[in-house]
């Protein structure tokens, strides 16, 4: 295998990995804030992709430019899911873990069914994007623009997230809430409101990921399943609750997947990711950057 070919695999693995990190970021943020694994995460992504698709059809604006709008809509959706479902799951006294798993699993089935009912199970794709068929050609390496765009959005998002978490009062309140819910209540932070905002922010991050993916991936009701599994592995690999761990783990997952596809038949590429997860948690039972 030539150096250029290796570089090609590395570059596309890296870009895919950045996007995986973005897909996982919302899941990780929500888990870090309140220890809830959202089993409807893939369906949040599916909804964002359909929202992007719908907006492109109705407005004709390029999907790349619509990403902020989709993120805003998903923010509202995420906060609403918290207020209507998760809030009640948090109040439960017995079996809280199982109730959270199955309340969100029920939500995922409901959302998939609703998408099938409203949009039919057909596969759709956006063909009008300016990014669509273009590729960037640098030193023998070809990178499709949609993938590159996704990677750039991911970097920008994590940069922005870092600033929000460290520089704003909201970010500090979020961090304080995840550390100690009882104590923040004493200084006048409304936990319920922080949780709702956290779910909004988590869903908005998925919204960005969905808008980016909709540019080059098929949009259909079951699309979430293929990404949610990777997102769970990414979040666990980075260490549950570590948002920037999710970025690092996403990149590792993307690279391992790309290189596995070189060594093994492409159908088996996910085995590389699964093996990686197992090896890492057997060595470090709390993931790469997790705290117990």
């Amino acid at each position: 295998m030539t150096a250029t070919a290796l570089l090609q695999v590395f570059a596309s693995g890296l870009m895919t990995g950045l996007i995986y990190g973005l897909v996982a970021s919302g899941l990780s943020l929500i888990f870090g804030l309140m220890e809830v694994v959202n089993f409807a995460h893939g369906e949040f992504l599916m909804l964002a992709m359909f929202a992007t698709f719908g907006l492109v059809v109705f407005t004709g604006i390029d999907p790349g430019l619509l990403a902020p709008l989709v993120a805003a809509a998903m923010f509202v959706f995420g906060a609403a899911v918290y207020a209507l479902v998760i809030r009640f799951a948090m109040r439960v006294e017995t079996n809280r873990g199982m109730v959270q798993i199955f309340a969100t699993f029920g939500l995922s089935i409901l959302m998939q069914g609703a998408a099938q009912y409203l949009f039919s199970p057909d596969y759709r794709s956006i063909r009008t994007s300016w990014l669509g068929e273009r590729t960037l050609h640098v030193g023998g390496v070809f990178l499709p623009w949609p993938l590159l765009f996704g990677g750039l959005v991911s970097i920008a998002t994590f940069g922005g997230l870092y600033l929000v978490m460290t520089r704003t009062a909201f970010g500090k309140a979020l961090e304080a809430t995840r550390e100690d819910q009882g104590a923040v209540a004493l200084v006048g932070i409304d936990c319920n409101r922080m949780f709702a905002l956290g779910w909004g922010l988590g869903a908005a991050l998925v919204g960005l990921a969905g808008a980016v993916l909709a540019v080059f991936y098929y949009v259909f009701p079951g699309v979430g399943a293929s990404f949610s599994l990777i997102a769970y592995v990414t979040v666990a690999l980075g260490g549950f609750g570590s948002v920037f761990g999710a970025l690092a783990a996403g990149i590792v997952v993307g690279l391992v997947e790309a290189f596995t596809a070189v060594v093994l038949p492409p159908e088996l590429k996910s085995l590389g990711i699964y093996a990686l997860y197992l090896v890492i948690v057997f060595l470090r039972p709390a993931g790469l950057f997790g705290k117990f």
Binding site: V85, F88, A89, V92, V99, G106, I109, L110, Q116, Y117
Partner: peptide, 13 residues
């Protein structure tokens, strides 16, 4: 699926 999902959520909660 909508009904089944809603039922699962309702019973769990």
């Amino acid at each position: 699926l909508v009904i089944y999902g809603a039922l699962v959520m309702a019973v769990a909660l």
